[in-house]
Design a protein around this nucleic acid. Structure first.
Lengths: 197, 197
DNA sequence: TGACAAGCGGACCGCTGGTCCGAATATTCT
DNA sequence: AGAATATTCGGACCAGCGGTCCGCTTGTCA
């Protein structure tokens, strides 16, 4: 069907090289200041190669980020509870947020770079849509009286690279996770709002 | 003291022209796609003039945004309750969020442009610091058991131009305001979190 | 009115994301 | 093996950006 013709060996090698190079540069210099020229140079390939593989700067950062979050995504759709299907919505949500926070804490710089590259298209990124749908569905199960859609956006808005970095200090490595979890818990435990006039 | 020498008449005229031009371009074409070349051309001045007045792209957008929010800022520090000092924290916070949401709804495109321009420096912008301090102080008064600092960041994270635009539809012009207000109310009404192990 | 500071404009710079095509190389077929 | 073919490579190239600079113009004030 949509079976792609097997990727040529050198192409695959170059793709890996570019990803590793981008990874290194983002980790070294902060989220921004990673031009594609530099990535190409660091990877030892031409600039055209980067674009042929990833289409655009956005595409490259997205690929990198999806590499980091693929495991979580699979655990959610096919894995065991509490992440996977089967557990009560509340537990699933907590487990999911915990996982996503972990990724965010480990990749704050990458997150910043990705935000900067996506800019306006942020809300149409496949990954974003997936996370959003998952959260919204769980919230709707747990609390049908809340605006699950908006609430999901609100929770995802917390995953801003710079905010993660500012919340995570060496002394308290998981402070961001704790803050997000507490906030989510407070929202889910809030008493039903009285109808507005 | 720091009394600036009176600005020359033509300089003042040009500053206004640039602001109005930027305003028009942002409103017409969406948040991005407003290069300083174009702003200068639209204003009928040279590019150098724009930079001399506003220092940078960021500075220009910031000036525009502060022009829109100056009234709210003054109402908070010197105005009457419920915005100004004197009202209970809870009412002040609600009134403030309502005001800020109004500004956001009227200037979603400008917000997007500003976010894009600020990028990493977002959390050190004077305006951001002011809003954040205000929220955090009110939350701390009302709910000493919550992490007011993080919660203030969380609330401000909602003011994303694109999110505002996506939440505001012609049919429900104030939906963004309603969503934000409800979310804030839920947070303030949440039962105290049990201590974590 | 003249002298001088303040402001002006747009050529200029370095850099960016993105395109393109002749050269090089992997793969496949005989 | 060796030719034929499809794919990929590399880096020169482009238009656009934010930002700088300096010779010229213009407002201001004595």
């Amino acid at each position: 069907m949509t079976e792609q013709r097997q990727e040529r060996a050198d192409a695959a090698r170059n793709r890996r090289a570019v990803l590793r190079a981008a990874e290194r540069l983002v980790a070294e210099h902060g989220g921004d200041h990673v031009s594609l020229d530099r990535v190409a140079a660091e990877a030892g390939v031409g600039k055209g190669t980067v674009f042929r593989r990833f289409g655009s700067r956005t595409g490259l950062l997205r690929a990198l980020l999806e590499e980091r979050s693929l495991a979580l995504r699979e655990a959610i759709t096919d894995g065991l509870p509490p992440l996977g299907p089967g557990a009560p919505a509340r537990e699933r949500l907590t487990a999911f947020l915990d996982g996503l926070c972990g990724i965010a804490e480990d990749n704050a710089a990458l997150l910043t770079a990705h935000e900067q590259a996506c800019a306006d298209a942020k809300y149409t990124e496949p990954s974003y849509l997936f996370w959003h749908g998952h959260i919204a569905s769980l919230v709707a199960q747990e609390r049908p009286d809340l605006d699950a859609d908006f609430l999901a956006h609100a929770l995802l808005a917390l995953f801003d690279g710079e905010l993660v970095r500012r919340t995570t200090s060496p002394g308290e490595p998981r402070r961001f996770t704790r803050s997000v979890t507490e906030l989510a818990a407070a929202l889910l435990d809030a008493p039903p709002a009285p109808p507005v006039p």
